[in-house]
Computed example of a mutant assay.
Amino acid sequence: MKTPKSTKIENIIPAYRMHTQSFINVLDGISEEDGLKRIENKTNHIVWMAGNFVNMRYGLGGVLGLQEQDPNNDLFFMGKTLDESLQYPSLAELKKNFHEISPKVYQKLLEVTDEELDEMFEIGMNIPFIKETKLNFAGMCIGREDYLSGQIGLMRRVFDYPGMKYDVDENINY
């Protein structure tokens, strides 16, 4: 692993890289048709979950100074509610977006300084024990990605796919 400039981000980077692997693995083999299925019209579909995951990557990149914009931001920003009247991107498109943004965000994680991470970043949560900084936002993004991977993993099983594998492709270095 490359050495980051910030000591504060050292714990985030391995989780970020493992989530890259998890994103790939949890979506492995999911058909486009199954990606749009919901459970009793009560859950989000896998496409929405994957889109929200990709949107988190764009969001983290933006906080770290990237100028990249999620092409599907209007569908997923801030966990926007699923709207079945809208056209959602394909899983293939979301995977493409994921692989475009993720290495750029990873590079920013390596370059960010402790001072930048300590900068205030208003999330609007108004929770007294959470200091709204760029570092804490990065941590919240990691938490959200964990949650979404778990949700997609559960959907895999509901739709009779095998459980997610934890294989690591060492050629993917972001």
Rank of each mutant, 00 (worst) to 15 (best):
N73M: 04
I123L: 15
G65P: 08
Y106A: 08
G61C: 12
T113I: 12
F98V: 04
G61A: 10
D83T: 02
E116W: 08
L82Y: 06
L75D: 02
K104D: 04
F76H: 06
R57G: 03
Q67R: 13
L94H: 03
R57C: 08
E84V: 12
G62A: 14
E122A: 13
Q67N: 14
L82V: 03
G61N: 04
N55W: 04
L66W: 09
M120Q: 15
E93Y: 02
E119H: 10
Q87R: 11
S90Y: 04
L64V: 01
E116R: 06
F77N: 11
I123M: 15
L75A: 03
E111T: 06
G59E: 10
K104Y: 02
K96I: 01
P71F: 03
S85F: 07
G61T: 08
L94M: 02
V112A: 07
G51E: 00
Q67V: 13
L109I: 10
E111G: 05
N72R: 05
Q67I: 10
Y88E: 00
L75M: 01
S90G: 02
P89Y: 05
L91Q: 10
K108L: 13
L75E: 00
V105I: 08
Q107W: 05
E100I: 15
G65V: 12
D74Q: 12
E68W: 12
V112R: 03
L91V: 09
F76M: 05
Y58W: 09
S85G: 13
N97V: 03
